[in-house]
Design a protein around this nucleic acid. Sequence first.
DNA 1: GTCTATACAGTGATAGAC
DNA 2: GTCTATCACTGTATAGAC
Lengths: 188, 188
Amino acid sequence: MREVFERDDVIPLVAEVFRELGYEGASLSVITQRTTLSKGSLYHFFPGGKEEMAAEILAHVDAWFVEEVFKPLEEGDPEQAIARMWKSVDSYFQSGRRICLIGAFALDETRDRFAGVIRNYFKRWVAALESALKRCGREARQARADAEETVSGIQGALTLARALNDKAVFGRSLRRLQQRLAVPLPVP
Amino acid sequence: MREVFERDDVIPLVAEVFRELGYEGASLSVITQRTTLSKGSLYHFFPGGKEEMAAEILAHVDAWFVEEVFKPLEEGDPEQAIARMWKSVDSYFQSGRRICLIGAFALDETRDRFAGVIRNYFKRWVAALESALKRCGREARQARADAEETVSGIQGALTLARALNDKAVFGRSLRRLQQRLAVPLPVP
DNA sequence: GTCTATACAGTGATAGAC
DNA sequence: GTCTATCACTGTATAGAC
């Protein structure tokens, strides 16, 4: 029995390896095991090797957030978009069982390789949320501060949940952040 | 010219390499360069190799926080201890230029090797802060929530500052967290 | 598009001279 | 306590058969 893969089938599998082991820790031998693909096949899909795999995955994750989270925040109904963000974040990070690959890459020298993507991802998230908050009627300075604090808080929650090996921490943190972000509707 | 090192002289140097490159990324060849010590010498100090180096460093960092932050929070005047915590955190993480080694280790499979230390570090930090907040007169549930949120928030701030390559983010986040934690003194 | 076989640099680690 | 020399092994990457 022999399976035939598409490039896009491989990406999520490899992504999970990077998430679990980090860039340096994700060796090709582990990747071959998890994908059930040989090195030859992997290099067929990604001639640039490991670095190309990681770049592709980061672009993939980024694109998902752009469509699912950032664009709605930027363009859609702000309150609906914010509610959707909380839902997407909780499900994407599997209620704290899964970490943020881009956030993890930001912490070590891996950042240097992918500085652009990493920076843009977080920059756009903060800016998109800030925009939505302003359209909710929040004052400009406050919107900026709250957006930054929220994105930062999500990353912190992921770290702490992982460190304590307690996904409940993630749920609690998310709920606190969400509550703080909920603006009281302007009194009619 | 030939330098003679003590084990304790080496630890901070190696620690910085781990912080920058992560556990897997910190190769012995880099460590020899940064310490100016040969592999032979390193194995003289750390017969257990890389894993022993990392364990030693984690214990070192942990001990520093215990003395500088946790114990004061647990035993000392709570308001003074909290003020001291903010100062220590800002200076330890060099206002956002330096990341948290223990937090970074928590994110990838390195966590599995050092799960105990990592868990205890964060657990004790949260508990110590919670204790101080209670002694400040805060209600128990609120104290717990605020402690968790603060420690989590610091980790998030480190991640975001690194990702955006903007240490100002760290300063702002720290100030916001600090402000939220500041309890209004009970009205006399 | 998949595989095996292979190249060869770099890895963590050890032995032994000084 | 320091070094150099060397070890076996795994790392990424490539070539070529099917």
